[in-house]
């Protein structure tokens, strides 16, 4: 009957998610240009599974399907998961990951707004732990691979896991720079000698750095549109750079330089798209700084000492666990209150 603020001027949730998708487009475009069209198939597959599973669950809970589906949050989760997976990941891997992310990590907690963990990262972590070999098979960038696969061959490989007759598996795939760096360091080669290998580009991975730059552009657009607050990306990148700088100066032979850490792996994707998920992240400005710094520290630890090549997923999940505590203790000073 009486709803006091009669006028509202806020972009609908779907507009916010639309802007996030828009910010991802340059990254996807660079991705396709470097690694070929395989990723598009994964994205379509993931989005389709996400929408179908969300609709099914909403039907199960007798909730109106259209308003929830049209807020595109499931599409964003699916896209983030697809971009984190290796491009030539078999189709069932993508479906299982998306199903786990949407059903368990999001809808089980009550749908949009209640999931304590970032759904995309939950899906990625589940896949990484249950199918480690498939997850570490990254294709070499097209220019580097001995026999670059055309789009149809990639499509064929994704769905039937068979290669064109004359091509062997390792001709197509190679380790990611991070993975390669870790294995070489185990054999305690010098970092400087390792980075001469062909797969290392000017900063990060040979072709990968362009994708990272594209993500950077998308991320800056999001900040300018005030969809994400600047606290998270800056804190993450600053801490990651600072830690790698410290380790690098201590022992340059054993630790890669900061720029490499920033530009390689999923750092930029994580900084602008993964930790800025509003639902599972902190809400207070100071909380965001602590959260992003925590993710950066854990990512660096897992990258250098841990067992997995890129620890972004686990770092995000672990810091998601601390979010309620961080929120509770970083309440800003209310107008008229002394520091509580």
């Amino acid at each position: 009957m009486n709803r006091s603020p009669y006028i509202t001027d806020a972009p609908a949730v779907s507009i916010i998610m639309l802007k996030v998708l828009l910010a991802l487009v340059p990254g996807i475009f660079a991705y396709v240009w470097i690694y070929g069209g395989g990723i598009l198939v994964t994205i379509v597959l993931a989005t389709f599974t996400a929408l179908v599973s969300e609709a099914a669950l909403l039907k199960l809970r007798q909730r109106p399907i259209r308003p929830y589906l049209s807020d595109l949050s499931a599409v964003v989760t699916a896209l983030l998961l697809a971009l984190a997976l290796p491009p030539l990941a078999p189709w069932w891997l993508v479906v299982v990951g998306t199903l786990f992310a949407i059903v368990i990590a999001k809808q089980l907690y009550g749908g949009l707004g209640y999931n304590p963990f970032n759904p995309a990262m939950v899906g990625y972590a589940v896949l990484l732990i249950s199918f480690p070999i498939v997850m570490t098979k990254w294709p070499a960038p097209l220019i580097l691979a001995q026999t670059p696969l055309g789009f149809m061959d990639q499509l064929h490989f994704i769905f039937s896991n068979t290669l064109p007759t004359d091509v062997k598996i390792d001709a197509v795939t190679s380790a990611t720079p991070l993975d390669y760096l870790k294995t070489q360091l185990m054999l305690n080669h010098e970092v400087s000698s390792i980075t001469q290998a062909p797969i290392f580009g000017v900063w990060g991975a040979k072709g990968g750095e362009f994708v990272t730059v594209a993500y950077l552009l998308g991320g800056l657009y999001l900040i300018q549109q005030r969809i994400i607050s600047w606290h998270l990306p800056t804190a993450f990148l600053a801490t990651l750079a600072a830690m790698s700088l410290v380790f690098y100066t201590v022992n340059p032979a054993h630790f890669a330089n900061p720029l490499f850490h920033l530009m390689s792996g999923a750092s930029i994707l994580c900084a602008f798209f993964i930790i800025t998920d509003p639902i599972s992240g902190p809400t207070t400005p100071r909380g965001k700084l602590y959260f992003a710094a925590g993710v950066a520290v854990l990512t660096y630890l897992i990258r250098v000492y841990g067992g997995y090549p890129d620890g972004v997923a686990f770092a995000v999940l672990i810091m998601n666990m601390c979010v309620p505590l961080i929120d509770m203790h970083t309440q800003p000073r209310v107008f008229g209150h002394t520091k509580n």
């Binding site: 929830y68 949009l112 809400t283 207070t284």
Partner: peptide, 15 residues
């Protein structure tokens, strides 16, 4: 009349 309320996504725009 306001469109139906959707669940809160904790985006902290209100904060």
């Amino acid at each position: 009349p306001p469109p139906p309320a959707m669940p809160c996504i904790r985006c902290a725009r209100c904060a």
